[in-house]
Design a protein around this nucleic acid. Structure first.
Length: 574
DNA sequence: GCCGTTTTCGGCCCGACTGTTTTCAGTCG
């Protein structure tokens, strides 16, 4: 919580300084600190206590002092001072597309605009259009920006944005003269949520392609339309809109453009700095030495010229990826490593399909095994199985497995971790299962110590193999519980219990930063779909992307093991 | 404000699009 509060404080300081027209490098520095704090898994107070704050890249004497000040007295004097100089509602105006620091400062100083409502009034009554530098077009654009901000709302989950992006990519591919289309941006990096969709294509006549793009049937409004770039909004569902950007590049620049528009911004800034130190210039058109292009057709050749391995796109967040070597990259988990899925539900509890349907669908994915995990008795809403029904389920699945060809069907359960940390089934019943997933589905509001202790108790049960969706968050719906992730990781390392990377796009739990922490600490993972219907088995790719973002290697993921290895791993645990 | 394989001072990524400008500033990614 402290990390987040501090991150917000530093970001706000950045905003306030920007409106004031302060040194932009100082502003960037505060923003970088804000981002670092948001990314931090460890409690920043622990870093302060152990005197390790200055070891964090981007945090120097100045920002460290402010962090310590905040921890000691709960305030940052400079922030208070800045806040005193301008209205509370002003920084929020920076979020409006088309409104930058200069324009926000102008409307405040010239028109006394202090918040969004004031700005809307000034648009209505024509005062804004009269302001120097704000012509009719600017006002229209700002009005549209406000409308977009109000309808787009929160960032869109990966699993919702990707199908839309794939459909759009297909439409762009059908435009005359387009040779190749790619999805770039945070969507390509596999971020759990995205703000917009970035598309890239090869074509010689950029202007013509952009004209066709902004005229596509599903386009709601056109934000920009030039010779190489078009920017539009498209509806997502009934009430929301998403921004979609298309860039058109020639074939020899495709790799450079793909690299550039895949980001992240932070990764690219570092890469360009590295290029510049080696006497190159890097931009979206290629890598240049003395104005001569030396790379750019593929991403790989750019990284190679700069003496770097081909850094996988999921790692490009400036979280240490420039230091990792090619041998490590080879070992990162891929979809091809996945041999089975260990968490799924049938009609016996709250699933929509039968055992047979799941097994057939999984066979189609060329898996070696699946694990059937219906809910336990306390999950009444999910039609959890009583002890008697669970005993019956074990017999049913075992009998089915005997006759089903081409895939091993294991029998397990998703056993509730009760509010006191006890499991919902007795040990002797759990012992009959192949793989047991234990998850929290109740009392999610417990205090940090309570819910952490509760989970550790389940981790310590020798019949539990996997902790399902450890933080219980639902993207944009329900925040994570107060659980102390470093603590449960520590316990899981000690017992050998695997932590789940739940691949359902609404969950992605553990998230990428948690995975990175778990991997660094030596924990084992299990990437599962938690499918309640056969199409959901396809969501494995979201979990694998999340695991890659957390630097997970295949040898640390239990469902990359062969069936024999998996069962041996399980025996060793006990 | 941060940082160092030219550096403890002097840098700090780079180009496209737009609008209101008559040559460029602001915004964005």
């Amino acid at each position: 919580m402290l990390n987040k509060e501090l991150a917000n404080a530093f970001n706000l300081m950045g905003d306030l300084l920007e409106i004031q027209g302060a040194n932009r490098f100082r502003i960037n520095s505060f923003r970088r600190t804000g981002r670092t704090l948001k990314d931090l898994i460890e409690d920043v107070a622990v870093l302060v206590e152990e005197d390790r704050l200055l070891e964090v890249p981007g945090i120097g004497k100045g920002t460290a002092g402010k962090i310590e000040e905040f921890i000691e007295v709960g305030r940052i004097a400079e922030l208070d001072e800045l806040l005193g100089k301008m209205p509370d509602g002003l920084p929020a105006l920076l979020d409006i597309p088309g409104m930058g620091p200069k324009k926000v400062a102008a409307v405040w100083k010239e028109l006394d605009i202090e918040e969004l409502g004031d700005l809307k009034e000034a648009i209505e009554d024509g005062r804004l259009a009269e302001l120097a530098g704000f012509g009719e077009q600017s006002v229209k654009k700002i009005g549209e920006g406000i409308r977009f901000m109000e309808t787009s709302g929160e960032r869109v989950p990966y699993g919702e944005a990707l199908p839309l992006a794939e459909a759009l990519a297909e439409e762009v591919g059908a435009i005359d003269g387009v040779k190749r289309v790619a999805i770039a941006g945070s969507l390509r990096r596999g971020r759990e949520t995205v703000g917009d969709i970035d598309l890239l294509c090869i074509a010689s006549d950029g202007a013509a392609v952009v004209r066709s793009f902004v005229a596509l049937g599903r386009v709601a409004s056109v934000l920009a339309s030039g010779d190489t770039k078009g920017s539009v909004t498209v509806p997502l569902g009934s009430a929301r809109e998403m921004q979609v950007d298309l860039r058109v590049v020639p074939e020899e620049s495709f790799g450079a453009a793909l690299q550039y528009f895949s980001g992240s911004k932070e990764h690219n800034v570092r890469l360009r700095e590295m290029a510049s130190k080696q006497g190159y210039k890097l931009n979206e058109w290629g890598l240049f030495k003395n104005d001569k292009q030396v790379a750019g057709r593929t991403e790989e050749e750019i990284y190679a010229k700069l003496g770097l391995p081909a850094i996988p796109v999921e790692l490009r967040e400036d979280r240490g990826e420039f230091e990792c070597d090619a041998a490590f990259i080879e070992t990162l988990i891929t979809m091809a490593d996945i041999r089975g899925d260990l968490h799924m539900h049938t009609v016996a509890s709250d699933g929509k399909c039968t055992l047979e349907q799941l097994a057939e669908a999984a066979k189609g994915l060329a898996y070696e095994y699946i694990n059937i995990t219906d809910h336990s008795k306390s999950s009444a809403i999910a039609n959890g199985l009583s002890i008697e029904r669970m005993e019956q389920q074990i017999e049913t699945v075992r009998a089915f497995d005997k006759t089903f060809k081409g895939l091993k069907v294991l029998v397990g359960c998703e056993c509730d971790i009760l509010s006191n940390g006890d499991l919902d089934y007795p040990d002797d019943l759990l012992a009959e299962c192949d793989i047991v997933v234990a998850s929290i589905h109740s009392a999610m509001g417990q205090a940090k110590e309570v819910i952490t202790r509760r989970t550790i108790k389940a981790i310590e049960n020798p019949h539990v193999h996997i902790i399902g969706h450890p933080t219980s968050r639902l993207l944009n719906k329900r925040p994570a519980t107060a659980i102390d992730v470093p603590e449960i990781v520590k316990a899981a390392v000690e017992t050998g219990t695997a932590l789940e990377v739940n691949s359902a796009w609404k969950r992605l739990d553990l998230n990428d930063r948690h995975v990175r922490h778990a991997i660094d600490a030596g924990a084992m993972l299990s990437i599962n779909t938690d499918s309640h219907d056969t199409p959901q088995l396809q969501q494995m790719r979201y979990g694998v992307a999340t695991a890659r973002r957390g630097w997970a290697t295949a040898d640390r993921v239990i469902n990359t093991m062969s069936l024999k290895q998996l069962l041996a791993w399980k025996e060793r645990m006990q």
